[in-house]
Every structure is written in C-alpha cells, then in structure tokens.
C-alpha cells in the first residue's frame, strides 16, 4: 500500500508509534531506572526514569537476599532447573515429533488426537493429581517434579511445533538414507535432527523463557528456601520487605529478567518467527 500524501501522514505515524512505544516500554525502563534510585526517590520522584543519585549499592544489597539466603542460591537453582528442562524438552520433544511425523504405528491418529487435546488442557485439571503423585513418591521439595516432565515430552505444544516442521522436510531424504542402510533412528539422528535446528532454536528459547518465568510449579513443589528459584526468591523478598526495601527489590527484579533480555536481544528473529508461524503465547 503506497501512500500519496506522504510526509504529513508519515510524521503523524512516527509521532504516534514512538510515543506509544515509549508508553509500552516505560514500565521496563522505570524498573531499571528505579533499581538505581535511593528509597526516597522511588516514591518522592516516582515517575522519573533517571535516578537523581545513582545508587549501585541496591544491587549489592539485593544480591544478599534476606534470611541468610542470597540471590546466588536462587539464580543457581533457576539455572539448574531451566537448563535441565531445556535439555529434556529438546531431547524428548524432537524424537517424539519425529515418531509422529514420519513413522506409521497403530492408533497413531488417536494418539495424535490425545497430544493435541493436551495442548489445550487447562493445567488445573492435572495439577492436583500430579501433586499427589509427586507427594506420594517423595518428590515434593525436590527439583524432580519440575524437571522430569520435560524429559517425558515436555510441553505438548513443542512437540506439535516440531511435528509441523518435520512434515515440511522432504521425505525423499529419509528414503535415500534408508536405502543407504540407515535405521529409523539413524534417519532421525543423521537427517532430521540437523535440519531441525531452526525449529529447535525456537523451542529452546521458549522453553527457557517459560521455565525461567515459571512461578506456579516452584511455588507448589519447592518448600525449602534453599531450593527456591529466582521467581520464588523475588516473591519472598517482596513479602518479607513489603514496601520497605524497594530499591534492592527492583534491582533483583531487573536482574531476574536479564537472561530473557539477553536471549531476546540475540534471538528475537526466531522468537518473532516462532510466534508468527505457530501462534505461541
């Protein structure tokens, strides 16, 4: 669509898009700006984005955490959980997707229907029995309930995404490999997996971001403070210092989003493509 009366509408467009864009990222800029403000400024000069006095000490103070457990523990826990979930998701979702996309087995249609039904299933339905199950095997207050599901296929959505991607890979490649003596599993390792890379990048990014952000599962399963993830750590911090320690709290909030910002900065193309083609989140 080419516009005729160019400049004026262009000016209005850019003023609007920039102005509204500023409103959109204001809360994020505010968070980062205020994480460097002294307490009095966070409230006395609430709306401003630039601290009058730059107080880096908020980060050091926040990092100490409270009650003897610092954010080093929370970050370590989050890293452990997130890394293992990402590994589990990539391994299990890719092979399962290959099975659904390329191999004919009995009841495949029904099982595929089950897979798709679980994509839309509200978590609340399985939440309670899963908790009881993990409670009975003694896994409450360990990382297992957060990690093990990822090794058993993970989010069904990721499997679906990968199935769609594999369906786009020409079957002739598989057939050629089978003629050359490859087994089905060999085809997966040598042919499909290397070609799956772009889709796997999308899966990795989303799995990382969702796990890093996850609040409900750690809230339910992790009781000991020494096992808490960053999200729960922040909640503890917020509750413990309700309204008294905003500077360090905002400093740790900013820091908690750091891995996501880094991922976003490097992989935003994959993110945007991932959403555009599949409609995630």
């Amino acid at each position: 669509m080419k516009k005729k009366n160019g400049t004026l509408s262009d000016i209005i467009y850019y003023i609007f898009v920039i102005g509204f864009g500023f409103v959109m990222i204001y809360p994020i800029l505010w968070m980062i700006g205020s994480s460097l403000k002294p307490e009095t400024e966070i409230f006395g000069n609430a709306a401003s984005l630039i601290p009058g006095e730059w107080l880096w000490g908020n980060y050091a103070q926040g990092w100490e955490g409270f009650g003897g457990i610092g954010f080093d523990v929370y970050f370590r826990n989050s890293m452990i959980v997130t890394t293992l979930v990402v590994i589990g998701t990539v391994c299990s979702a890719s092979i399962v997707a290959y099975g659904f996309a390329r191999i004919n087995f009995k009841f495949k249609a029904i099982l595929f229907g089950c897979l798709m039904a679980t994509v839309m299933l509200p978590v609340q339905i399985t939440l309670i029995p899963q908790y009881i199950l993990f409670h009975n095997v003694g896994w409450v207050n360990t990382f297992y309930p957060l990690i093990v599901p990822a090794f058993l296929g993970g989010q069904p959505f990721f499997i679906f995404l990968l199935i769609q991607f594999i369906r786009g890979i020409p079957r002739e490649l598989d057939e050629a490999a089978i003629i050359d003596g490859c087994s089905k599993f060999g085809v997966f390792l040598r042919i499909i997996l290397p070609l799956l890379k772009p889709a796997l990048v999308t899966v990795i990014i989303f799995a990382f971001m969702w796990t890093w952000d996850d609040f409900l599962a750690p809230l339910i399963y992790l009781n000991s403070a020494s096992l808490h993830t960053v999200t729960i750590g922040l909640r503890n911090f917020m509750d413990a210092d309700a309204g008294t320690n905003w500077g360090p709290l905002l400093a740790m909030s900013s820091l908690s989003l750091f891995p996501q910002f880094v991922l976003f900065a490097f992989f935003q193309k994959y993110l945007v493509q991932g959403i555009a083609t599949t409609g995630i989140k």
Binding site: P27, I28, W30, M31, M209, D213, F215, V230, T231, L234, R235, M238, L249, L250, S253, S254, S256, L257, Q260, F264, L271, K281
Partner: peptide
C-alpha cells in the same frame, strides 16, 4: 509479551 508474566513485572 515476553516478560509480562514474570514476578519482576508484578513487583513493578
């Protein structure tokens, strides 16, 4: 959209 569900944004 990416960070809207996080605890950090709840704090903010």
């Amino acid at each position: 959209s990416i960070i809207g569900g996080s605890v950090a944004i709840a704090v903010v």
